[in-house]
Nucleic acid binder design. Structure first.
Length: 885
RNA sequence: GCGAAAGUGGCGGAACUGGUAGACGCGCUGGACUUAGAAUCCAGUGGGGAAACCCGUGAGGGUUCGAGUCCCUCCUUUCGCACCA
């Protein structure tokens, strides 16, 4: 072994060994318990960032740890290779997206390899390969057959920058999730996947996922948004026009059927057909409808928007009283939820109340609290008006509590065909059409005589041409006759191929299945998938808590119902890793705009007054002051990223891995620290030096556990204690930082241990072996070399996790902490396993303790907790040391 | 507004079931080595106090022999959802 640690040489050698031996290539093995460890696949943007390093290190540590536990571990990797950045890059430098993407993959693959991740590269998948996306198309056609996929012309969210449709999930605060541009509404034909069909199961099965963070399950539950209520039909009054009369009634959904007698108006969305019909006769109303349409989504803060409305002049009839009720168009009613219409009950709903106040509509009280009086004066609004209570002024339904009133009203309505109980979900169907080039083609043909025709299975995949370069105006596929001109598969006539491509979330909804059998040419998945699935441990960012994870769950259930899978849920355990943060520095440029300075280019010093100031030297010479802006997620926009490649070059992959695992628990944010990185590097060198100093004295003899000194036994105890703690921290708690801390403590103990006798060296050898193997999942390269240096033929990566020698943990005597009235006052040593009375006497015999007790007669109670090695002496009156002093 | 998580030294964090608060690391201080620095090694490092001790986990109350941990009220921060009828 070399005297000095040279990360580059050590890491190269270790990786060469793993590569040569095909260490991480796995086969299905029915005789061994499998462990499928999966990290979310990266988008091939060009370079790895620290978030990737953190994500894949967590996955790799778990994979290597489980391998040491004897599991048959699959850890694959692939590329989420379709998507818009490739098109944008193509526009700015003229390279086709396919070429750009494949170059990026090649570079990032090399970067991943340089970090030493134990990946089975023989299973690599890129979603832009026809052999992969062919099965997107195939399954889409199956969904079409089952009615899970369907085409609908409707209002969609349109991103004006990316020139494409967005799913509801991709609109954040009225803006596109990627571009941040205000989303517009457009009506175009779009393909949808009927995820709402699975809403109840997607919600209910969350309870079957105890291995998921509570937070993620809650976010999904909220997103699915189940509410129980009633559908109520309000018949149109005779004044209504013929278009509506045909409909017969205006339907609403409500969770508060008990307030039905408090309805004083009806409110409908601007896009509601009744509004459209009324608008045709009333130009003023038409203008208002148009204003709502434009306004509602564009407004940054929709929730605080002023409630506006305009009467249609039309009426419906109350289903029980027959009273006419005026229909209003209201900007606070959403077309996409429920029926796009609500019954206005200003007496018991804050929003309806606000609307009624603005438009001078009457307020009626129909629910009073179970106890106490209720004011009929309605300004200001009190939240308790929306509480459940007892119905009043509700005809035959008066005097009922909430549930009874709802039941009675629903029963009566359904008898007359005017309503029923219903469950409503917030979740909408998933629109998957994208007017983009770099995505999976939707396998359909539009024929003048046959209509929409699916591409036959034997003609799949519909190949995406790879040589197009988008110019920024619309979809290049729609301008490429070579792509869209085709024959109708049914009648053979000239037809037009669908030019929309699929949302890239389709690609990532099932990629983890394909890793099981990436070479399967005749089917989407085969029996090998049954061996590996479900994924035992999934690791990725919290930002995918809703979209990707919900779509994947949905996709799994669809495939199950098609008979392709036997599982209900794809990911048994989920770990959501925290963001990687770094300092943010900026200064104001001459034009007033802020320019961000990378933290590596910032120096700190004290000014004349002793305050810390930050400076940077610009490329053109001058040194200027910069302002510290706090911590922010590592990003291009704030110029605070740390390049993993540079880090690996300077310190080695093991240091990068060790630091990211040590600085914070995996689910928390990680604050970057250059000093912390150096600390990690220093630790690895100390470990290296410890092994070097040990092995340089030649092989050590066999450990004889029966003939050890106290110090030797002490070292063994430290080693086995660290081993037990690390196994628990990694295996159960997923707290890698404390496992590393335990290893550091052990190395500190080894450093203090200077017994070079025969058995002393044997104990040292054992401790060094333990620290090496315990850390091998985290710093695998250096562990590989140290293990070899410690005299082992077999590679560290093939070693099982060492077993704890419980006899090494036992002690002859144990120290008890003695408290007086809960305050630490002394320590006593007693024989291990001593009786409680012995411990008690030892505690009371302690001089220091007695000083605080005063006299034995003052002792009221003595609590001995053997498991915690603590004794608490309860003294009647607070005495304290000052009595004696 | 609703929902969730979190507030611990100069900093990142530890304390898992209520049982020694501050493990481990960074930083800092002193020392050794060195012409000097870097690196490395040794010692110290929550605050106050000469010491005995006292005080300390966002604030205030409570339960308990014992509370960072449990309960109540409040404050702050972060995240998610946001007119969902």
């Amino acid at each position: 072994m070399e005297e000095h640690y040279d990360p580059a040489a050590v890491e190269k050698a270790a990786r060469a060994y793993w590569e040569e031996h095909g260490t991480f290539e796995v086969k299905e093995d029915k005789g061994r318990e499998k462990y499928y460890c999966l990290s979310m696949l990266p988008y091939p943007s060009g370079r790895l960032h620290m978030g990737h390093v953190r994500n894949y290190t967590i996955g790799d540590v778990l994979a290597r740890f489980m391998r040491m536990q004897g599991r048959n571990v699959l850890q694959p990797m692939g590329w989420d290779a379709f998507g818009l950045p490739a098109e944008n890059a193509a526009m700015s430098n003229g390279v086709p997206p396919a070429k750009w993407t494949r170059q990026n993959i090649a570079h990032m693959r090399a970067q991943l390899k340089s970090l030493g991740f134990g990946i089975d590269w023989s299973r690599e998948v890129a979603t832009c390969d026809p052999s992969y996306y062919r099965w997107n198309q195939w399954l889409f056609l199956r969904m079409l057959e089952q009615g899970v996929a369907y085409r609908k012309t409707g209002v969609v969210n349109w991103d004006p920058v990316d020139q494409t449709v967005l799913a509801n999930e991709q609109v954040i605060e009225g803006r596109g999730w990627r571009t941040g541009a205000p989303v517009e509404r457009r009506e175009i034909p779009t393909y949808y996947l009927n995820i709402t069909r699975y809403a109840q199961e997607l919600l209910g099965d969350l309870d079957q996922l105890p291995g998921w963070p509570e937070r993620v399950r809650l976010m999904q539950a909220n997103w699915i948004g189940r509410s129980e209520g009633c559908e109520i039909s309000f018949p149109f009054a005779p004044d209504t026009n013929e278009a509506m009369a045909r409909e017969g009634a205006l339907k609403v959904f409500t969770t508060r059927a008990d307030t039905l007698f408090g309805v004083t108006f009806m409110a409908i969305a601007a896009e509601h057909p009744v509004a459209t019909a009324a608008g045709r006769r009333d130009p003023g109303l038409a203008a208002f409808i148009e204003e709502c349409r434009r306004g509602s989504v564009m407004e940054a803060d929709v929730a605080t928007q002023e409630k506006k409305g305009m009467s249609t002049g039309l009426h419906v009839l109350h289903p029980f009283t027959g009273e006419p009720i005026e229909i209003w168009v209201a900007n606070y009613v959403l077309m996409g939820y429920g029926e796009g219409a609500v019954m206005g009950v200003p007496g018991h709903d804050e929003r309806d109340f606000e609307f009624a106040q603005k438009n001078s509509l009457p307020v009626v009280t129909v629910v009073r609290p179970k106890t106490g009086a209720y004011e009929d004066v309605r300004a200001p609004w009190m939240p308790e008006y929306s509480d459940y209570g007892v119905t009043v002024n509700s005809g035959e339904f008066s005097g009922l509590e909430f549930q009874a009133a709802v039941d009675a009203i629903a029963t009566s309505l359904s008898r007359r065909g005017l309503g029923c109980k219903r469950v409503q979900y917030r979740l909408r169907d998933w629109g998957i059409s994208r007017q983009r080039y770099w995505g999976c083609p939707i396998p359909l043909v539009h024929c003048g005589s046959c209509g929409e025709v699916p591409v036959p299975d034997d003609q799949l995949p519909v190949m995406l041409p790879e040589d197009l370069v988008p110019d920024g105006s619309g979809n290049p596929l729609a301008k490429s006759p070579a792509f869209y001109q085709c024959k109708c598969p049914k009648c053979g006539a000239d037809a037009r191929r669908e030019t929309d491509t699929m949302d890239t979330f389709v690609d990532s909804s099932w990629y983890y299945m394909r890793y099981a059998c990436p070479d399967q040419a005749d089917a989407m998945i085969d029996e090998r998938a049954a061996y590996w699935l479900p994924v035992d441990q999934y690791i990725g960012g919290i930002e995918h808590a809703i979209l990707h994870l919900l779509y994947s769950r949905f996709w799994t259930k669809v495939m199950r119902d098609l008979g392709l899978l036997r599982m209900d849920e794809p990911f048994t355990n989920l770990l959501t890793q925290g963001m990687v943060l770094n300092d943010v520095y900026s200064y104001a440029q001459a034009d007033g705009r802020r320019r961000f300075v990378n933290p590596t280019d910032v120096r700190s010093r004290r000014d004349g007054a002793g305050a810390e100031v930050f400076e940077t030297t610009l490329a053109d010479g001058p040194t200027i002051r910069v302002e510290y802006q706090g911590l922010g997620k590592m990003s291009k926009s704030e110029n605070n990223g740390v390049d993993p490649e540079g880090l690996v070059k300077r310190f080695g992959a093991d240091t990068a891995r060790l630091f990211t695992m040590f600085a914070a628990p995996p689910e928390q944010t990680l604050e970057w620290s250059d000093e912390g990185v150096q600390g990690a590097s220093r630790f690895i060198r100390r470990l290296w030096n410890a092994v070097y100093e040990h092995v340089k004295q030649g092989p050590s003899s066999r450990l004889d556990t029966r003939a050890l000194t106290d110090a030797q036994r002490g070292l063994r105890r430290a080693a086995h204690h660290a081993l037990a703690k690390a196994a628990d921290d990694i295996g159960r708690r997923r707290n890698f930082n404390t496992a590393i801390a335990a290893s550091m403590e052990l190395l500190n103990s080894i450093g203090r241990f200077d017994d070079i006798s025969d058995q002393g060296r044997a104990a040292c050898q054992e401790a060094l072996e333990i620290v090496t193997l315990v850390l091998s999942p985290i710093i695998p390269h250096v562990a590989h070399e140290l293990w070899r240096a410690l005299g082992h033929e077999r590679a560290a990566v093939d070693e099982p996790w060492p077993s704890v020698d419980t006899s090494a943990l036992s002690q002859d005597s144990v120290e008890f902490v003695v408290q007086v009235n809960g305050k630490l006052r002394g320590r006593v040593s007693v024989a291990s396993g001593a009786e409680e009375s012995v411990i008690r006497e030892a505690a009371l015999a302690d001089e220091h303790v007695m000083k605080f007790v005063g006299s034995r007669t003052a002792v009221k109670r003595v609590i001995v907790v053997p498991g915690r090695q603590i004794v608490n002496v309860v003294v009647s009156a607070p005495t304290g040391g000052q009595q004696d002093g």
